[in-house]
Design a protein around this nucleic acid. Structure first.
Lengths: 143, 143
DNA sequence: GTCATTGCAAAACGTTTGCATGAAT
DNA sequence: ATTCATGCAAACGTTTTGCAATGAC
């Protein structure tokens, strides 16, 4: 374990991530931070995100949409990613409480209590599709 | 939806994936298939894997270890990836039955019934670490 | 004959790394 | 003075793409 020195860049990255309530990619975060530090480099953002993940101050989310996402909330919770719009949503602990009991009975000690990723389609996308179907059936005003 | 034409390469990729009981990456699959078709290109492997995922004949697993993995078993089941050794394990449906009820109650229609990815550490790695700890405490024969 | 598929190589993408400079301790 | 962090650019590994040639229908 090496000693970390203070860096205003790292502090800014962490602060920026904490203040956002979405789950930005490294690149999105880079764009945000550039407003305050126009000279910061993408490499620095990646390096610091890795450090913060190592120290457990932030979480990395690999959702399969190409780029990793980052979460400023270190406290245990779950994530749900929409296959359509690639939005990442938080899923509170309570929802999964019963799962963990089941999982532990099956494979004691194996399943982490807070590392589960759900995939599906979010209500926004489901509603959008539903209204598009209605359009087709009824009077199509888009034609 | 465009019409698919037969291709022996695609057939071979599918057959190869079905016969394996692990969850290979595109590159590992490419290596296997080269034994039968030495001229097949990596691009073709990727193109066909994408087609097979689209038609639902195979599953793509994004586990965050750099490369995507593929699963020849299309039937619903879950996956568990070890953070240490990056092995991907199957988790049978029964284990999760109770979870889905809970999830549906929370977010009806949102959570897919078979798209959950678990992260943790497998028993192999846990045992390995345990025996290493014993080594330290007892007579260290590695020194 | 038409259109999907192939092999190849180049490009794209997200991420990491080497290096000389600069900042923190 | 030492050691870590930075900016930049080059390199990396994975995946996609453009293209001319081949194969399925």
């Amino acid at each position: 374990m090496k000693t970390l020195k203070y860096s205003r860049q790292r502090e800014s990255i962490k602060a920026c991530l904490m203040n956002r309530h979405d789950h930005p990619t490294a690149d999105a975060l880079y764009a945000s931070i550039r407003e305050e530090y126009p000279n910061i480099s993408l490499g620095t953002v990646y390096r610091n995100l890795n450090l913060l993940v190592e120290t457990g101050e932030i979480q990395r989310l690999t959702c399969g949409d190409g780029a990793d996402h980052y979460d400023g909330v270190a406290a245990p919770h779950y994530h749900f990613m929409c296959r359509d719009c690639h939005q990442v949503y938080d899923v509170p602990m309570e929802v999964i409480a019963s799962l963990n009991e089941t999982a532990q009975a099956y494979a004691p000690g194996i399943v982490d209590s807070h590392s589960i990723l759900f995939f599906g389609r979010c209500s926004c996308c489901l509603e959008k599709e539903a209204s598009e179907k209605n359009m087709e059936k009824g009077v199509d005003k888009t034609a």
